[in-house]
Structure formats: structure tokens, C-alpha cells
Design a protein around this nucleic acid. Structure first.
Length: 108
DNA sequence: CTATTGACTACCG
DNA sequence: TCGGTAGCCAATA
């Protein structure tokens, strides 16, 4: 059953709508869900996104820093996935972050 | 119900 | 400019 009323599924749906080669922040997703204070909860949802079709590697913090890379299988897996989409990452920091940043509240 | 943890964000020195 | 602290929400024990 699709109990999409949960906070988790809400985050998953938004994350899935992130276009290829773009990234967003936890606060942006939370803001789109009308709960800008729940940025941490969004990250918590991403932790449980394993096994789902959620491109969690496209979700970073508001500074463009790969804070959640440790949760992936490899230490550099998240960075590799981003670079695979044409996103340049340097020292866990996304280059041209605002250029690849995708705001669901504006684009969606 | 209270306490602790965490892939966050904003403010302050 | 940079590092540390506080506030916030959701889940777990």
C-alpha cells in the first residue's frame, strides 16, 4: 500500500524528481514539504532510502558539501556518481554548486 | 513520556 | 573568513 502520507515517502518523491546532472539540499526539500525546519528529518529519510529508487547522491547540504557520502557503500561512491552526471566535486565540495542546484520550490 | 542521535541550518565571536 | 554553539524536527531506545 502506498502510505505516502509519511515524511519519508514525501522526501523520496521529491528526490526522484531531481533532474539528471542537478542537485538539491535537504532544506530545499523540507521547504517544498512546507517544513523548512525539518531539514534534518529529510536527511534521516535519506538514510532509510537504501534499496529504493531514490538518487540520494543528488541530495547534499545547503553548502554543496557531501556530508552524507559516508552513508554510501564506498567512501567516494557518492562523489563518483555525481561526477558521472557531469557534476564536478572537489574535496567533498560540489563545484559550481549554485549552477547545478535545483530548487523544487521554484522549478517544481 | 523522557533522553539520545543525526546525510541540517542559522547565528555568533 | 572560519570554527563553534544553539535551535529545530523525526525516529529509536
Amino acid at each position: 500500500m502506498s502510505n505516502s502520507s509519511n515524511f519519508f515517502d514525501q522526501c523520496y518523491e521529491v528526490a526522484r524528481q531531481i533532474p539528471f546532472g542537478r542537485v538539491t539540499s535537504y532544506g530545499a526539500i523540507a521547504s517544498y514539504l512546507a517544513v523548512p525546519r525539518s531539514a534534518r528529518a529529510v536527511g534521516y529519510a535519506m538514510t532509510a532510502s537504501h534499496g529504493k529508487d531514490v538518487p540520494a547522491h543528488r541530495v547534499v547540504n545547503r553548502k554543496g558539501l557531501l556530508t552524507g557520502k559516508h552513508h554510501f557503500q564506498g567512501i567516494n561512491l557518492m562523489q563518483q556518481l555525481l561526477e558521472n552526471e557531469g557534476i564536478q566535486v572537489k574535496d567533498n565540495q560540489i563545484q559550481n554548486f549554485e549552477s547545478v542546484f535545483w530548487d523544487p520550490a521554484k522549478e517544481l
